[in-house]
Design a protein around this nucleic acid. Structure first.
Lengths: 110, 110
DNA sequence: CGAGCATATGAACCGAGAGGTATATACAGG
DNA sequence: CCTGTATATACCTCTCGGTTCATATGCTCG
């Protein structure tokens, strides 16, 4: 229930997310692909769902899980102030800072 | 010593990093700004340094800490496969995902 | 040199969370 | 219905990491 980062701190959860990045999956598929016990998968999915990283739909006896963008986007946003540390040289940095002081309009391409 | 995400899971450490994003700081400055006990600051800085998030230089009796890009960049890279979930038009993407489970291929919309 | 400040480290304590086991629920098909 | 499959949940245990308190180290200056 804490921060998105806390949720991502767990390696198995990151593995699940990476798997779902490709396409949606049922619990059983995840279980087999990642070779982890079903109860463990279910629990991690619970955490991921509570934190908004995934959502599930019911399909007969199975639940199909898929990615939700929100929290990942937040993490991405958190990184923004640090990008200047690796994104190019000084001139680009200055432009970047200039833009930030301007009106907080729409984001541009990356 | 595990993942960078585990390091970022700690709120105080994220606060320290955000503070250092602006400019480098001494331990005392961080301590005062964030109002946390010095020993706590030092320990978090230790973790951050071991994980490569910061580096320190000695200046008389003080240590000045500053950001290192590497690990943050890695986190940024980890997010790459997920960017497609929000960087394009969301409505079309959702529809796309809904029917994506059928073919494990690269089914583009008709 | 000795006092005082700035920072690091060690030990004990404590709560959160991950894994395992067992079990509950729900649906499908014979 | 009964059995088997698919998924979720409760409970317990055990580890790990964060906090606090006490102390060590190192530098500056009077």
């Amino acid at each position: 229930m804490e921060s998105s980062f806390a949720v991502l701190a767990e390696p198995n959860r990151r593995a699940i997310l990476r798997l779902l990045a490709t396409s949606e999956r049922t619990v059983g598929e995840i279980e087999r692909r990642l070779r982890m016990p079903q109860t463990s998968v279910s629990k991690h999915l619970r955490v991921l769902r509570d934190a908004g990283f995934v959502e599930s739909r019911v399909e007969a006896q199975r639940r199909v899980y898929q990615i939700r963008a929100e929290p990942l986007r937040e993490v991405d946003a958190w990184l923004a102030p640090f990008r200047r540390f690796w994104e190019t040289h000084v001139d680009a940095l200055e432009r970047h800072l200039d833009r930030m002081e301007q009106a907080p309009k729409k984001g541009r391409k990356r």
